[in-house]
Nucleic acid binder design. Structure first.
Length: 601
RNA sequence: GGGCGGUUAGCUCAGCUGGUAGAGCAUCGGUUUUACACGCCGGUGGCCAGAGGUUCAAGUCCUCUACCGCCCA
């Protein structure tokens, strides 16, 4: 049997078990050395193999040759085949410093986010091995070990000793090796704050609040920093470890140079902008989950940046220079109050989400609010009230708040826009991040405008689906049995007419004696677009029949639940009453659709 | 071999403590209206991998199966 404990890990283990000697026969240039036959010495390893085979053949000791697959290590840079070698290295004994490091995580002095990564940490810490901390590299912290060249004494000291502590010789040399990169990384607090743990800096900034990193670094850095930090200071180096996912390619593969599937961020930034890239990653970064890189999504969020730019441009164009943030709520409109209340809600939610590191949901929320509430609705509403200074104040104030909310996700475009609307602080980042304000609570106005939006949407839908010329100004009748709601909507008709292209809208409590027409139904309201507006009756019939089936289905579902004794007795009161309310709404709707169908037929 | 994660609209992915499914892109119809056609208005599209279980109620909790991926040995 051939065995080379000095040049193969498996053989090394066998040698340990059987008390065999490890004999070095390959030197650092991969040439043969040591106690081998004279003629082999100096040959490189590949030549030597051939020679050995030849010799064995001569001795008639080769039974057969065959190819098989095995694993051989290669240098990751130059691909050179690696030959394992035995050498003297410095090791850190980990058993003692690992225990306190396990304890601080068990006692939640260090918290992993998401929590599941704690298991990965424990798994590694419970199976920890002594840590080889010396490396044969040029760069790094040099190991503070000194050798006496006379007597061979080893001295580990902070400062280079003048004399050998054993024989007093002055011929002293320092170890050539440097510390493992991760050992140096573990020393980060000391490198940055100084080596005196009683210093002011140390007392102020240690421990730090959070360590953000990838899961693959839990072993390399997080665990080591905790061990070293706890050992030298008795205190954890950070309170929280936020684990983010890795960015993978479109197929979910880890990006790597050898696979050639890596993406250069600078190329992406050239194409879509750094804000778009940053926002895309932020909105896709579900805590602890990997991200599949998708160019299409970045492209989508580039258009968002464009939208922000244009909306801001519009707002700035309409400002008259006299807008500060002292808004007189007595003089603001219902729609102003609606957007302020909405904004206030978003601010509250975003703060909550950010506190819980659910940044992806925060980004999504802001995105939707900016585009589909502020732009789609509020900017349109405000066009009617642009001469009202307090509306312009709200317009500017809301934009400012949105820039603040967006700033962590899109720092460049938001800062650029801020520069043109700023009031006091020089830079956006200096302003105080928004928080919920009890002064901006306008529940009633919020509800009123939400109702108005629904009616407008239903009207548009009815219009479009019946092929009424989109540019044609038409007459519209609205009906509700609720006097309160009729009053609310009649006060908001100016917005309604503008956004539905209505010449004249009449609000009724009854539709009899009116011309026949296309109908829409929503939230107890009915919309009537007279046939005189033209349109396609057959399309309408088709649409209504489809909707009729939908409603019937929903009534069936809700009815099933409500006739279930268990549901009624066990489900919470609020759910049951909600179901009942919805059932009534759908029943009403069904009747109205039936009426409309008969009108049309 | 051990551990972890994924399987939701054509594609890439959200969906917190269980209460009748969302985004971006794509697609279809309409629209060049004085912030934006990188736009606006409207629509289509999903028995939430499969099977069982818990529950009045499951994309959401539990078990198993299949496939995909990652980490450790």
């Amino acid at each position: 049997m051939k065995i080379t404990p000095a040049h193969d890990p498996n053989d090394y283990d066998i040698a340990l078990r059987h008390n065999l000697e490890s004999v070095t026969v390959i030197d650092h240039d991969a040439k043969m050395t040591g106690p081998v036959q004279e003629k082999f010495i100096g040959l490189n390893r590949f030549e030597c193999r051939e020679e050995v085979i030849e010799d064995l053949k001569k001795l008639n000791l080769i039974e057969k040759e065959e190819n098989y697959i095995h694993n051989v290590g290669h240098c990751h840079r130059c691909e050179t085949m690696i030959e394992p070698d035995i050498s003297k290295q410095w090791f850190l004994k980990t058993s003692e410093i690992a225990e306190p490091a396990i304890e601080v995580v068990e006692k939640n002095k260090v918290v992993f986010i998401p929590d599941k990564w704690k298991k990965v940490y424990f798994n590694w810490m419970f199976n920890i091995k002594d840590w080889c901390i010396s490396r044969q590299l040029w760069w790094g912290h040099r190991i503070p070990a000194y050798y006496c060249s006379k007597c061979g004494e080893i001295m580990v000291e902070e400062e280079r000793p003048e004399k050998c502590s054993n024989c007093m010789s002055t011929e002293i040399s320092q170890d050539e090796d440097v510390l493992d990169t991760w050992f140096s990384s573990a020393l980060w607090p000391f490198s940055t704050l100084g080596w005196n743990v009683n210093s002011e800096d140390f007392k102020t900034y240690y421990p730090t609040s959070i360590m953000a990193t990838g899961f693959d670094i839990i072993f390399f850095w997080v665990a080591r920093m905790i061990m070293i930090g706890v050992h030298f200071t008795g205190e954890v180096p950070f309170r929280e470890v936020l684990i983010n996912g890795l960015i993978r390619d479109g197929k979910g593969q880890k990006m790597s140079k050898t696979k050639n599937n890596a993406v250069d961020p600078l190329d992406v930034i050239d194409k879509f902008g750094s804000d778009a890239l940053r926002f895309t990653l932020a909105i896709q970064a579900v805590p602890g989950m990997d991200i599949s890189f998708s160019m299409n999504r970045i492209k989508g969020y580039k258009t968002f940046a464009n939208k922000i730019w244009n909306a801001s441009r519009y707002v700035i164009m309409n400002l008259r220079g006299d807008e500060d943030f002292n808004i007189d709520f007595e003089k603001t409109t219902v729609t102003d109050k609606w957007i302020l209340n909405f904004l206030n809600n978003i601010i509250e939610k975003v703060n909550d989400l950010m506190d819980n590191y659910r940044t992806n949901e925060a980004a999504d929320l802001i995105y939707h609010f900016f585009w589909h509430e502020y732009c789609d609705w509020y900017l349109e509403f405000a066009k009617n009230d642009i001469d009202n200074i307090d509306t312009r104040k709200v317009l500017k104030f809301t934009l400012f708040r949105l820039l603040q909310l967006l700033h962590p996700f899109m720092p460049f475009i938001t800062e650029e826009i801020y520069q043109t609307i700023k009031i006091d602080e020089d830079f956006l980042i200096q302003t105080k991040f928004p928080s919920f304000s009890s002064k901006m609570v306008f529940i009633e106005e919020y509800k009123d405008i939400e109702l108005l939006k629904k009616i407008i949407m239903e009207t548009r839908k009815t219009r479009t689906e019946n092929r009424i010329d989109p540019n044609k100004k038409i007459d519209i009748y609205l009906k509700s049995e609720s006097e309160k709601e009729r009053k609310i909507i009649s006060n908001l008709l100016i917005y309604f007419d503008f956004l539905t292209k209505s010449i004249k809208t009449e609000i009724k409590d009854d539709f009899s004696n009116l011309p026949k027409g296309f109908r829409g139904i929503c939230l107890g309201w009915e919309i009537l677009l007279p046939f005189s507006n033209n349109g396609d009756r057959l399309e309408e019939l088709k649409r209504l029949k489809k909707e009729f089936d939908k409603v019937k289905n929903q009534i069936k579902k809700l009815g099933e639940n409500l006739s279930n004794k268990d549901f009624v007795s066990k489900a919470p009161e609020s759910i049951v009453s909600n179901f009942k309310k919805n059932l009534q709404i759908f029943i009403d709707k069904k009747e109205k659709i039936q009426k409309t169908i008969s009108d049309l037929s």
